[in-house]
Design a protein around this nucleic acid. Structure first.
Lengths: 368, 368
DNA sequence: CTGTTAGCGCTTTCAA
DNA sequence: TTGAAAGCGCTAACAG
């Protein structure tokens, strides 16, 4: 224990100090502190008194060693400055208190090696369980997770061959709903931006594929033929969207709507549209994905598919808690997305569009 | 230790297992794992071999108990969904790895009682030290912190009577610079919004007072008389700014510029201006405080005083680390603010204002 | 109902 | 250079 020089007592207070002061045994003190029965009212009172007099606080490390449980849950994210991750962390941290645990936060700085290291470190008994958000999917982390002697829950994890418990958000239906929304507004030339810049070197992730499938499904249902020239490999960052937006707008026949890979990408697209001298949604409609907090506050506010990020964090904690306590339960689940219609979508130029539906909800969550 | 049923071995691997496998004593294994000398190359190799064969990971809890140090630093914030706090957490989490520690994150949900509880909990040896952000200043938390046997660093803490180590951001000079910026643009009727809705029930905080002093200093230096009717008690949230903005604009002689209590407040003001049918900065200039990430992305982008939130988090970690290791050092410091000029400020209507200066920097940080 | 004891897994002395 | 042993502070089992 770290002892401060100006600490009220020269050394940390232990059970024994309290026991001595109360004239009982250390075991009795422990019983009282943990509320386990078999203690007379009289001694209980004496112990409590002594404890508070001395300012006794049980040492969590010692208890952890003895009980084999730290009441800490690890949470590993790549980048806290990205609102996508920040929201998940928020959901987790808001929930965890209710389970009597606290959060150990790790950031991997987007570095697969560091990610694997942290997973390993977490397995050393610091935490009773670990949540890994958006594992890089590289062999290292996943293998470490699978071998770990500590329960682990993955968030936003799409490895179909792995049996690791996970909490994901639905993608296909969300994308289909968003595309349908655009179609109903009267759009027919709807561009789709993939999240990976280059499909050959970066194979598209399964969640991105799901979104694409949703897009295709919506087109097909509406009887609109796919124009492959409108499907671009963009990226998840603002500048990706900006570049893709520029490219699309400079064509002789630009699309009337753009479905971006995520909200950041959509922001870049909107920027490109503005720089082109066009307006959103007057000249081009734009749809994002995720619904980060910024989406509601930008200008124009962004129509987007909401990923339930906070609930995902919360669910991961729940699930992990059950795992830690060996309770059975669903261990792979997918939370629903929902379309949030805001100001960045409207009927195409010169089209008397259908009236807007305000917000589409995808029912309760679905177990896969 | 939590043992998973499908764990590679039936029980967690301990030093003894490794010792047995390598044919040495447990002590020797520990020496090797911690790189403490006095071990022959031969045995060292054998131990390392055995450890990796068995997949041995030292138990952090046991080590923590023995060594009296967990290599965990606690961080207590009120509300992670507020970018002000999120940025500080980000700064801390990005720095902490370099110090060989990890972060235990606590949220107090804005509840003073819970805040004190968490400080107490943190003192129980989970963490080697604790950072408390924006303590509610209520007696409970501060007293708990002062009595804690664990080193503690406060962030954004303004109790002049307390000797607790702290990392703050400069307020007065920042506010003065911002006000001067408005004056130089040609504004003379500059409203100032306090951060507390009601000065009588909520006595203004020292940092708010400092900002107000900066405002007064700037007016005085420019020879502009203070108009007390332009000083309002607003609040730190968007709706506060909105209400104050409405009130000011509905007057017969509205101000030409508004210096809001913080960025959220400024957002509310801008909203009120827009609803009033006026434009920012054409009809009214608006300045915020803090420079949360949103400030740069809103529309119009916000001129504001940047609080170095990430550096504050990083500094707090540094300082705490020194404290934990009993190194001497400055223990109360104040990081500089800087004015960031964006699109929400311009000369008042019909005024040929001075040319814009782009960004004002307040030099290196200052030790108080 | 209460006190005593053993030992969680590790590191650090001390003795060989 | 290595092995043995003590003990960090706590709790759970057991003996009284």
């Amino acid at each position: 224990m770290t002892i401060r020089l100006d600490s009220p007592v020269g050394h940390p207070i232990t059970v024994h100090d309290v026991a001595r002061a109360a004239g009982v045994s250390a075991g009795a003190v422990s019983q009282v502190m943990n509320g386990r029965g078999r203690i007379s009212e009289a001694t209980r009172a004496r112990v409590l008194r002594a404890a508070s007099d001395l300012g006794y606080v049980p040492n969590a490390t010692a208890r952890g060693l003895r009980v084999g449980r730290t009441n800490l849950l690890g949470l590993l994210v790549q980048d806290l400055s990205n609102p996508y991750f920040a929201e998940i962390v928020f959901g987790a941290s808001a929930t965890i208190g209710g389970f009597g645990h606290d959060l150990v936060l790790y950031t991997s700085s987007d570095d697969p090696e560091r990610e694997r290291d942290r997973v390993l470190a977490l397995s050393s008994g610091v935490a009773d369980g670990v949540i890994v958000v958006s594992a890089h999917g590289q062999a290292g982390t996943v293998r470490a997770a699978e071998r770990s002697s500590v329960p682990m829950v993955m968030v936003n994890f799409w490895e179909p061959t792995s049996k690791l418990p996970r909490v994901n958000a639905e993608n296909r239906v969300g994308a289909r709903t968003a595309t349908t929304h655009l179609l109903e507004l009267g759009h027919e030339r709807i561009a789709f931006l993939h999240g990976k810049p280059d499909a050959t070197t970066h194979p598209p992730r399964p969640d991105g594929q799901e979104r694409y499938r949703g897009y295709l499904e919506a087109l097909e249902a509406a009887g609109v033929a796919l124009d492959e020239s409108l499907v671009l490999h963009s990226g998840l960052q603002q500048h990706h969207g900006w570049m893709s937006g520029r490219e699309l707008l400079n064509r002789p026949d630009p699309p009337t709507a753009i479905f971006a890979a995520n909200d950041f990408c959509a922001m870049g697209v909107i920027q490109a549209v503005k720089e082109h001298g066009w307006r959103v949604p007057g000249d081009v409609s734009v749809v994002g994905f995720d619904d980060i907090p910024l989406a509601a506050r930008m200008h124009p506010s962004l129509t987007t598919v909401r990923h339930p990020l906070r609930p995902m964090g919360a669910m991961a904690v729940r699930l992990l808690f059950d795992l830690v306590n060996r309770r059975e339960g669903v261990s792979q689940l997918e939370l629903p997305s929902e379309l949030v219609v805001r100001d960045s979508t409207a009927p195409p130029r010169g089209h008397r569009g259908a009236s807007r539906d305000s917000s589409f909800k995808e029912g309760s969550w679905k177990i896969v």
